[in-house]
Nucleic acid binder design. Structure first.
Lengths: 258, 258
DNA sequence: ACTTGCTTCTCACGTTACGTGAGGATTTAT
DNA sequence: ATAAATCCTCACGTAACGTGAGAAGCAAGT
């Protein structure tokens, strides 16, 4: 009951390490009730209660420094303190949820194809990570409602789109040594475009718009998975594609039969 | 395009502090493409891509050390790595959710009564924190199904019970200088008992059972909000209560009218 | 050439809550 | 008394930078 425990006994009873008790002593958070002449620490039941307090507050996410203050201050606005702490924790939780979401999406894409281009992978993560910033950024370039629409896709459609995008990007990178007018390339470019169309409706022009914008002074928000050379190659391929498409459209508009 | 950026320019473009870039250089994570004779660092677009990779992986919760390894290793089991990371994050999330739950319950109790006995408060947090450990512990003493039943109460009932428990504990502590046979004390003890009854059905004996158990060698899992003296006082009050109740019960059993 | 002013450089200590020895003193058991 | 536990006090290590301190580099104006 009213016994004195050596630090070893006390640490076993409380499932706390000796080092931790030393540390709390050093901080002045929990001084043992009795210290022998030659410096040995002895704890009592009273100290146990103090330790419980410390552990409880630590569990709630307070730092040892804050706990020390609580112990010293007479007045402690519990209500305010608790709800503040709650906010902190909720934020942390949301942050973690974002990470989990990103991991899930990455996993979904990686699951069948165990190999993935690092650059494509990184771009994907960046896209997920900066979804919100990107939303704001994109709103500067295309219609706001459209942006909201893009990001309000149902979960699984989003996943499928991402998957397709990864596949196409990967394939395109593989073909980067072919001529940009090669049919295989043009097919992929076409697929890429129709993927974009799925998102943007039929506003093909928006692709051009975006690529023409000035971004000199801004922070580099994201980069494509393609190198500078690949980007140029793709730009050419895209030009070719649009030209042919234009012709094709004209054909359709003019004479229905080729 | 293919420019060289000073560390200041680069840090602005990438929204990364200079110190961070210094640090990554030191770790060998991101060495600037070019270093002048007198030690000035100059970065290029290639470095930007590397930085993006670092940031993306950091976002997913990897340490800089791990990221360094990823960069060095030829083979990188992405699938396994990602799902492992997912588990880690989910655990973290659950931990935080527990904390939030505890904060919510504490807030609910504190909300009207802005003042609360520290000892009562700590006990409450401990109770919440160690709910699972307690469940296992209690199962050693009372019926397992009963334990499950206690903890499977609907959310709001749980909250109300806790609230009542805090109120009663607080009131009891206030009356601790009165005689344990005082009627006001006995009323509170009665309330406490009926609260316990709400949880345990009519098994009054279980209170006795628990208090008689040996706990000498075990880790101290929890403590009551009462001091040693208060506990003795309460034990006496409880004795008195049970005795009177016994008489009363006998009365009821024997002669229905007093 | 000199001064002003801005940028960058390299130490190097501070942060948080302990973990992990090192080396010596003290207590307990035999 | 001697061996075996236990405990003591330094004191460095951790992760990812933040934050000066003091000195040097660099472009521009006088």
């Amino acid at each position: 009951m009213g016994e004195n425990y050596s630090i070893g006994e006390f640490s076993k009873k409380t499932a706390t390490t000796i080092r931790t008790l030393h540390y709390y002593d050093e901080l002045g958070l929990l001084k043992p009730s009795y210290v022998s002449e030659k410096g040995r620490r002895y704890y009592t039941d009273k100290d146990f209660i103090t330790l419980q307090r410390i552990l409880a507050l630590k569990f709630l996410g307070y730092s040892l420094e804050q706990i020390k203050e609580f112990f010293q201050k007479k007045t402690w606005d519990l209500m305010h303190s608790l709800s503040f702490q709650r906010n902190e924790m909720v934020q942390k939780k949301e942050q973690i949820e974002n990470v989990i979401k990103a991991l899930d999406r990455a996993l979904h894409i990686v699951e069948d194809r165990n190999e993935i281009e690092p650059s494509v992978f990184i771009t994907l993560i960046n896209t997920i990570q900066m979804e919100n910033e990107q939303k704001e950024w994109l709103k500067g370039y295309i219609d706001k409602d459209l942006v909201e629409e893009i990001y309000s896709l149902p979960e699984n459609e989003q996943l499928e789109l991402e998957k397709k995008w990864v596949e196409l990007s990967t394939e395109l990178k593989k073909l980067a040594d072919l001529d940009h007018e090669d049919d295989r390339v043009q097919v992929l470019i076409g697929d890429m475009m129709s993927l974009v169309n799925d998102l943007t409706g039929d506003d093909l022009a928006f692709v051009q718009e975006i690529s023409d914008k000035e971004v000199e002074d801004e922070i580099w928000l994201f980069h494509s998975p393609f190198t500078a050379e690949e980007e140029e190659w793709m730009a050419n391929a895209l030009d070719t594609y649009l030209k042919r498409k234009g012709v094709h459209l004209n054909n359709e508009d003019g004479t229905k039969e080729s």
